[in-house]
Design a protein around this nucleic acid. Structure first.
Lengths: 356, 356
DNA sequence: TTGAAAGCGGTACCAA
DNA sequence: TTGGTACCGCTTTCAA
């Protein structure tokens, strides 16, 4: 049996398909009586609109602006791939992706939006830095009717439609739990982050500190170090950290900026001695995990973030489905034993292995 | 600009859309010359078929049989939900899901297929048990043109189209690594599995044993215990295991059958003393994780498995896309610190939190 | 070998 | 307030 169409409803009720359409969509100019009859019959027949027919007829064109930084390509490239994957999966809809690039998180983004003032986007995806800086821009755009989805970090109270991130608090908490289970000695731990004004970074620290305090009384926490996402800065800070005695027993690097830290450890011959938990996955990190030199890396699933973010946005723009205001993905804990499952991601980001 | 359609190609070349269609699909009765001209022009204009129009016109009806066991509902219910989610996401296609249920893995499945001999399915999803038993049935179906996707476990060389599972070897390997990092003492470990004839179960044991041998020389492995997925059997076996001295330092329960084992531990007052790694997530397990009484559970993402499996199957049946023969999802490592991210799954399985 | 045309299920416009 | 109809892009049948 083929599913019922508006034609069937019209025929059964002896009215025209135009009227059925108006009734089903609650448009004006339908008598309450026929409206009720149509709705009831639709329910009764189990009518479900044929989305292929609808999107064929409407043939929408959507322009989506995607504002990501140039920096940290190991994270933002797969994010972009995820966005493209979601776009090409949306069959029959004409989505135009306009990728815009600013220098780095919280740097040049406001200016780029200003330069793009003439652009007319139906929706935008943005990786925001400091909410104080970018907030007003987003609010203004939102009020002009642009649907905004924040990715990778969030800007609450910016009137954005939704945000899609890895759960930052959980990332911090996981790092704390792993250290508390694997380090028996008493001592202290260090954290290296990007900017504490970026919500994602602050949340990771919150999760780390809170769980450490509760579950690992033998481990105390040094003040957080901000590397401002600059490799050289991170290297210098790590070197300084390791020159002091006693060394920290573990270091949690809560951004993708772990390589300079590992280099500093190597030079002080402390690699393997000091436990390290890193963030995200990229080729340079692989050998450290394979050799057991670092305990784990917390993978924020950039591909899935991008895919999910655009899916939400399209569902909103096309079907009027209001998304959850926040979507928090569970970070993957990558250890030596499951690294192989993610290595395909490092070279060529696809979604098969890890999509759910 | 709107994307080019076959009409545009036809118009530019001064031929009819029928011819364009035939050329693009390599159907017979097109002169090689026009064929080449069409293909070239399509390439040149960047033609992409409008999938909405295609599926509207074809209006396919697909009957999919889904053969899962009644047992272990905490795993197979979310698996079913994932299948339903994928079906309802496939817009404009008329897929009919026929859920069939046999008593338990490797029990009653062959008989159910025999009883369903009259059914005409375009594709089936099956959770297979022992390849020796179910293999011939699947092979026969495959040869009759039914597309088969194995879920949760696999039956290699059965001429199935594809399989979608959590990576079983990795699950075992992760369990071994977690034990090796958190247990310092020297001693032995135990594993409780379902049936070693089920490929998924055997693979977990392989991963566990191999990684333990390499990375944890201080931990030796007792012979694997098969519970045949029966809670009472598992309880008795666990009780017997714990009556011997010395106790194992850790137990890896590689199926969802962990509750009876935990009960046995509780009664011997060994809960928290003996480290436990469980499999999958369901309400009864939550308090054990929250209280830190078990180290971790390895979540096999049943919802995502079901969703992925049906997506693959539909893409094959509708678009002729041959899937990867095996898709191995990365299991999620659930600890106390990230449990909250998955708890929504326990009550009501949805895909937002963990889809990638 | 090619062309012409019907029709898939909705939406939207114009006429009644 | 309602009916009738053109059309979205593609596939397929029938005719030429």
């Amino acid at each position: 049996m083929k599913p019922p169409s508006i034609k069937d409803i019209a025929q059964v009720l002896g009215i025209s398909i135009g009227t059925v359409d108006r009734a089903l969509h609650g448009r004006s100019d339908v008598s309450p009586t026929t409206r009720a009859r149509v709705l009831k019959k639709a329910e009764q027949l189990g009518y479900r609109p044929n989305l292929a027919a609808r999107s064929l007829k409407l043939n929408r064109r959507l322009r989506i602006g995607i504002y990501f930084p140039r920096d940290i390509a190991s994270f933002f490239d797969p994010l972009r791939s995820g966005v493209r994957a979601a776009a090409s999966a949306s069959s029959g809809v004409n989505v135009e992706l306009v990728f815009r690039t600013f220098p780095r998180l919280d740097e040049g983004d406001v200016e780029l939006f200003a330069a793009d003032a003439g652009e007319k986007f139906n929706g935008i995806l943005i990786a925001p830095g400091n909410p104080e800086h970018i907030g007003p821009t987003l609010r203004a755009l939102a009020r002009r009717g642009v649907a905004i989805v924040c990715v990778a970090s969030d800007v609450p109270r910016s009137e954005r439609l939704a945000s899609v991130t890895a759960d930052a608090y959980a990332s911090g908490a996981i790092a704390a739990e792993l250290f508390s289970r694997t380090i028996q000695k008493t001592g202290h731990l260090a954290t290296i982050t990007g900017e504490l004004t970026t919500l994602d970074h602050a949340e990771k620290l919150r999760g780390f500190a809170a769980n450490l305090a509760v579950f690992a009384p033998h481990l105390s926490l040094l003040p957080a170090i901000e590397s401002h996402e600059q490799p050289k800065v991170a290297y210098r800070q790590a070197a300084a950290l390791l020159s002091r005695k006693p060394y920290p027993l573990g270091i949690y690097v809560s951004t993708a900026n772990s390589i300079p830290v590992l280099r500093a450890l190597e030079e002080k011959h402390l690699l393997g001695e000091v436990q390290v938990i890193a963030t995200d996955l990229f080729p340079e990190l692989v050998p450290y995990i394979e050799s057991g030199k670092i305990l784990a890396t917390l993978y924020q699933r950039p591909f899935t973030q991008g895919k999910t973010a655009l899916e939400l946005l399209l569902r909103y723009l096309l079907n009027g489905v209001t998304p959850d205001p926040v979507t928090r993905l569970a970070p993957h804990i990558i250890l030596r034993s499951n690294l192989a499952l993610f290595s395909s991601y490092v070279a060529e980001p696809e979604d098969t292995t890890s999509s759910g």
